[in-house]
Computed example of a mutant assay.
Amino acid sequence: MPFRKPPLESAARRPETVRMPVLGIETSCDETACAVYDATRGLLAHRLHSQVDLHARYGGVVPELASRDHVARIAPLVRETLAASGIGFGDLDGIAYTAGPGLIGALMVGAAVAAGIASAHGLPLIPVHHMEGHLLAPMLETPAPQFPFTALLVSGGHTMLIAVEGLGRYELLGESLDDAVGEAFDKTAKLLGLPYPGGPHLARLAERGQPDVFRFPRPMTDRPGLDFSFSGLKTAVLVALPRAEGEQARADLARGFEEAVTDTLVIKCGRALVQTGHRTLIVAGGVGANLRLRAKLRALAADKGFTAFFPRAEFCTDNAAMIACAGSARLIEGRKPDGPLFTTPRWPLADLRAPGVAA
């Protein structure tokens, strides 16, 4: 079966009465996840298996091992999720799966399982953009944000500011020119000798540090624009590392790095909100779980009079709840889920369009 991209738009609209549950499957990298989401009742069940222990000995994700583990885990996880939701395959209204971007082998596992379920039960198959899933993750919360809003998407592979006018209406405002912010966290953690995955360990170490012992630059904040650059911070940490002797000094260095990163993100978010005129900011992606970043953005929101939305920490990292939610939104709002099964390791968010909008 060919693995290529079908058109995402359709002029046809599904009836507004469609509110049956959607099963979501996520296998883009090193988490195997399933969820059932209903547009009326919300999230009915979600399950996730993390491969962190599998990859820790290698200091990073090994794609072949990731794919094999997805194969072993996905079918039992689907059964467990459906059982927890209290529904069966016959009660579903569609099957959503992460089609990209991600590791191609890992993506193909989830796509194949989703296609098999959809074919066996005569259900629509809904390919979901991984980043759109993250953008819509705050919709899982109560209250949920309303369109339009500005989104900060921060993860191990992405750092982006996006103007979100509605479903499929996304404008990239700025992005990292080199390392993603999560990547910068992981690389700095490795310099400090912290275990994989390094970002959460660095944040915990930084909690014990003093903020002004190590002062690092806030990159690209002294010039206009909304792009980011974090590779230089890693170099600055490497230069400062010989001065970080002892556990307290290492904590101080971690704190200095975290302060520099979070200050940079907050400054750019403030600029983005001025540029868009939006009064709502949502934060998504794994780094969105960082407590210091959340505290600073809440303080900025209180000072500037906008509202900040954050998904729960479990929905910041890769998960299937956001995929099921995005799939449900696409199905209800007019997305025609036809065309061949596809996966793609690279898929610019700008390629997504609103339902009913021609290319």
Rank of each mutant, 00 (worst) to 15 (best):
G102P: 01
G102M: 01
L103Y: 00
L103A: 03
G105D: 01
G105R: 00
L107W: 00
L107T: 11
V109Q: 02
G110R: 03
A111P: 09
A111Q: 05
A112D: 02
A112S: 15
A112N: 07
A114R: 05
A114K: 08
G116C: 00
G116S: 04
G116R: 00
I117W: 02
I117H: 05
A118H: 10
S119R: 15
A120G: 09
H121K: 12
G122R: 04
G122A: 02
P124D: 11
L125V: 14
L125K: 10
I126M: 05
P127V: 09
V128M: 02
H129I: 13
H129D: 13
H129N: 14
H130W: 06
H130D: 10
H130E: 08
M131W: 07
E132H: 11
E132T: 11
G133I: 09
H134A: 11
H134T: 13
L135S: 09
L136T: 14
L136M: 13
A137V: 12
A137T: 12
A137E: 12
P138R: 06
M139Q: 15
E141D: 12
E141Q: 15
T142M: 08
P143N: 08
A144K: 13
A144Y: 09
P145V: 13
P145G: 11
P145C: 13
F147D: 15
F147H: 15
F147C: 10
F147A: 14
P148M: 09
F149R: 04
F149Y: 15
T150Q: 00
L152R: 05
L152F: 14
L153M: 15
L153A: 13
V154M: 06
V154P: 01
S155W: 07
G156F: 00
G156D: 04
G157Q: 03
H158F: 07
H158V: 01
H158T: 05
T159R: 06
T159E: 06
M160F: 03
M160I: 01
M160D: 10
L161H: 05
I162D: 01
A163I: 04
V164T: 07
E165T: 11
G166V: 11
G166K: 10
G166F: 12
L167G: 09
G168N: 05
R169H: 10
R169K: 15
Y170G: 05
Y170K: 11
Y170C: 11
Y170R: 07
L172S: 06
L173K: 04
E175F: 06
L177K: 14
L177C: 09
D178Y: 00
D178M: 00
D179R: 06
A180M: 02
G182I: 01
E183K: 06
E183Y: 02
E183W: 00
A184W: 03
